[in-house]
């Protein structure tokens, strides 16, 4: 029997480090990037606060992590927990179950964060680490059959497809991992991807050894079919142009992610993928606002990269705050 007790993570009553009235640096997001930024900022002596809807972020939805140094094999949830515990040891205050609706850049370099609970909060520097969410396939049937066979979380919904036939869409690590997980429960797993695999070779090797996984590459899904629930997918082979219908009871969509940047549209520059554009110090187009992790522009969305970017953003924010202090002192002397 498995138990995933994380009361430390979800208990809203917990008092870890009092929340300062205003902060030197406010970090939005409690995933790997946000927590790493918080650890670095706190250790620099900055008054730090983390504002987050959930702690841990997307790694909570990952069964196992095998590419984070120091942990040859650890559950995503346990790694998230370890990140959080380390922040807690440093008495970093967390405002939980709260989102940021808007950032207003005001006078004296002050940033005001408008929160989802109606309050607002001031900080001198802000690190945006709001991560990303599942990208949709954007084909007919996906919307209407969502929750009726179309699913986005294999570890959540996999058990509901025991002894059924399921499709996994996508060709990255997340898709291959989902297929491997599902193969233990489902009768047959059909992997469909519009080009070639880009998943790690170790995962592909592992998948190849499983005989109830069937692979269709260079294959595009044109429709998810079904009336009350999913009955199958219509596909088109991109090499020979052949169309066919593959019967299935479920479709797991693992086709990448969308950056959570809606709340900063118009405030900082975004690229064509709606990721926040940053320089090599994770500085955005607006001075004093930094971005790190999946939300920031850059290839390879990985935990270890998010953690590294969080650290860079915090150190850069510290540098920025030092220049601010110096400027204030100079201004003071002149006055």
């Amino acid at each position: 029997m498995e138990l995933h007790l994380n009361m430390g993570i979800d208990s809203s009553k917990e008092k870890v480090g009092a929340i300062p009235v205003d902060a030197d640096v406010a970090i939005i997001g409690g995933g790997p990037a946000g927590i790493s930024a918080a650890i670095y900022a706190k250790r620099k002596g900055l008054r730090t606060v983390v504002i987050t809807e959930t702690t841990g972020g997307q790694i909570n939805d990952t069964t196992t992590v095998e590419n984070y140094p120091g942990f040859p094999m650890i559950s995503g949830e346990m790694l998230a927990r370890k990140f959080y515990d380390q922040a807690r040891e440093l008495n970093i205050p967390f405002m939980k179950s709260v989102g940021v609706k808007q950032i207003i850049s005001g006078a004296n370099n002050l940033k005001t964060l408008v929160l989802s609970d109606g309050n607002s909060y001031n900080a001198k520097a802000v690190i945006i680490a709001t991560g990303s969410r599942h990208r949709k396939l954007e084909v007919p049937g996906e919307e209407t059959l969502a929750g009726k066979g179309v699913a986005y979380c294999a570890i959540c919904d996999g058990p509901l497809f025991r002894d059924r036939n399921v499709v996994v869409v996508g060709g990255g690590n997340a898709a291959v991992e989902a297929a491997i997980d599902l193969s233990k429960l489902a009768t047959k797993v059909i992997m469909v991807h519009r080009s070639q695999f880009r998943a790690d070779q170790v995962l592909l090797d592992r998948m190849q050894r499983i005989n109830n996984i069937q692979v269709h590459l260079e294959t595009q899904i044109t429709e998810i079919q079904g009336i009350e629930k999913v009955s199958g997918i219509a596909v088109r082979n991109l090499t020979n142009r052949k169309r066919e219908v593959i019967p299935a009871d479920g479709v797991f969509v693992e086709v990448g992610y969308l950056a959570n940047t809606e709340f900063v549209k118009g405030l900082v520059d975004l690229n064509e993928r709606n990721e926040i554009i940053v320089d090599h110090k994770m500085q955005t187009s607006l001075s004093g606002i930094f971005a790190a992790g999946d939300v920031a522009e850059g290839p390879f969305k990985q935990i270890v990269i998010a953690v590294g970017e969080g650290a860079k953003a915090a150190l850069a924010a510290n540098e920025y705050l030092n220049t601010l202090t110096n400027e204030e002192e100079t201004n003071h002397e002149i006055a």
């Binding site: 909570n60 979380c153 959540c156 058990p159």
Partner: peptide
Amino acid sequence: TLGCPHCS
């Protein structure tokens, strides 16, 4: 399901 992190 018991493996679902956000169900609770």
